[in-house]
Simulated assay, not measured.
Amino acid sequence: MSAPLRIALFSGNYNYVRDGANQALNRLVGYLLGQGHAVRIYSPTTDTPAFPPTGDLVGLPSFAIPKRPEYRFPTGLTRAVRRDLADFNPDIVHISSPDIAARQAIAWARRTDRAAIASIHTRFETYLSYYHLQMFEPALRALMRRLYRQCDALLVPAESTAAVLRAQRMNRTIFLWTRGVDREQFNPERRDLSWRRDLGIADDEVVIGFLGRLVLEKGLDVFADACDLLTARGIAHRVLVIGDGPARAWFAERLPQAIFVGQQVGTDLARALASADIFLNPSVTEAFGNVTLEAMASGLPVVAAAATGANSIIRDGVSGTLVEPGEIDQYADALEAYVRDPALRRSHGDHGLAHAKTQDWTQINAAVEAAYYRVIERRARIARALAR
């Protein structure tokens, strides 16, 4: 049996706002602790976190991001944090966002000859187009390349993401860390027609669901445009929005007939998602679509952008429909086909559910553990060779 590891994990958001990325990190830490490893997490903190952290969390100095104050940007590693890191004496440093603290952590790892690995959760460079800052995308990509090439390896959630990163020359060594789904929480049995009726939705109405943070980079404009086109075609449907965020007012104005149920958690979230009939995810910013997999586990057919967040999850024409990003007509065509054909909804939903049942968290997180050992051993092997 391999010796237990000491792992220093750096995150831009470990638990102060709930999202798919930090829930995956917390689940990973829980697995690692259960395997006997020591983990210390370094992340910005707030007085009102969204959920309790898994593991020992050390706060990093940070400031609220302008126009997105719910998120915080770490300003770096203070002397106290550096002392804490040195005292912890990790075997490997794991960063999960390309911020200043992560850059300093990787620099520390290089100075002290520790293994270093980065996990990719979000296509940060794609955010810029939503704020009309596309001109800075090459510069941001260059900064990310400089950081990621200092790491011994990258962890990515899908082969489609790996292909993009290879093409961008981010790193030569890439391991897959896919995502699982809690099948006890997300499953078709959570569907609740009584709950729908309380919202004013008739049993025979077809509901198109959205789940996620209500922020522009989730493709809210594309979602609204596709639903508007569906309405213009005379295709009856209802829209159910699960989640909250700074763009809620904008989204509600764009879709005045939609039902907004706010942020849901636990079984309430699972009930809301399973009570939809179709899931629409037009986002192109995710490295992996956690919500897409949760919808599939709930038995829903999925219409999604043919981008890194869905390409490796959905089998086009089998468990859902992939659409070229931004092609509103194609989104509307896919939605119309599902609205008109209950048998097609059931068939694609069943195939998606079958795929979701194969996504076991224990095996998935064990792959990360194995990647840690591989990069640590490779760095030790190189050191031995240089010492000869």
Results as ranks from 00 to 15, higher is better:
residue 8 A to E: 06
residue 11 S to M: 02
residue 14 Y to I: 03
residue 15 N to P: 07
residue 17 V to S: 05
residue 21 A to S: 12
residue 21 A to D: 05
residue 27 R to A: 15
residue 30 G to R: 07
residue 30 G to A: 09
residue 32 L to M: 14
residue 35 Q to P: 02
residue 36 G to L: 03
residue 40 R to S: 13
residue 41 I to G: 01
residue 48 T to N: 13
residue 49 P to L: 03
residue 53 P to C: 00
residue 56 D to H: 10
residue 58 V to C: 12
residue 58 V to K: 08
residue 69 P to K: 04
residue 71 Y to S: 10
residue 83 R to L: 08
residue 89 N to L: 00
residue 90 P to S: 04
residue 98 P to M: 03
residue 98 P to E: 04
residue 99 D to G: 04
residue 103 R to L: 00
residue 104 Q to C: 01
residue 105 A to Q: 04
residue 108 W to Q: 10
residue 108 W to M: 14
residue 110 R to Q: 14
residue 122 T to I: 13
residue 130 Y to K: 11
residue 133 L to K: 12
residue 135 M to R: 15
residue 139 A to Q: 10
residue 141 R to W: 00
residue 155 L to P: 13
residue 157 P to S: 03
residue 158 A to R: 08
residue 167 A to D: 14
residue 177 W to D: 04
residue 180 G to T: 12
residue 180 G to L: 06
residue 185 Q to T: 14
residue 187 N to W: 01
residue 190 R to N: 09
residue 198 D to W: 03
residue 199 L to K: 14
residue 205 E to G: 01
residue 206 V to K: 05
residue 209 G to R: 02
residue 217 E to F: 10
residue 218 K to T: 07
residue 222 V to F: 08
residue 227 C to F: 09
residue 227 C to H: 12
residue 230 L to Y: 05
residue 230 L to E: 10
residue 236 A to H: 10
residue 240 L to S: 00
residue 244 D to R: 04
residue 246 P to A: 01
residue 251 F to S: 08
residue 253 E to K: 15
residue 262 G to E: 06
residue 269 L to V: 01
residue 272 A to Q: 13
residue 285 T to Y: 04
residue 287 A to S: 15
residue 291 V to L: 01
residue 292 T to R: 09
residue 295 A to T: 02
residue 295 A to V: 02
residue 296 M to S: 02
residue 297 A to N: 02
residue 319 S to L: 01
residue 323 V to T: 10
residue 323 V to K: 05
residue 326 G to W: 09
residue 330 Q to F: 05
residue 331 Y to T: 08
residue 333 D to Y: 01
residue 337 A to I: 01
residue 343 A to M: 12
residue 345 R to L: 11
residue 345 R to M: 04
residue 350 D to W: 07
residue 351 H to W: 07
residue 359 Q to L: 03
residue 363 Q to M: 00
residue 364 I to K: 06
residue 369 E to D: 13
residue 373 Y to S: 13
residue 376 I to S: 08
residue 378 R to M: 10
residue 383 A to N: 09
residue 383 A to E: 14
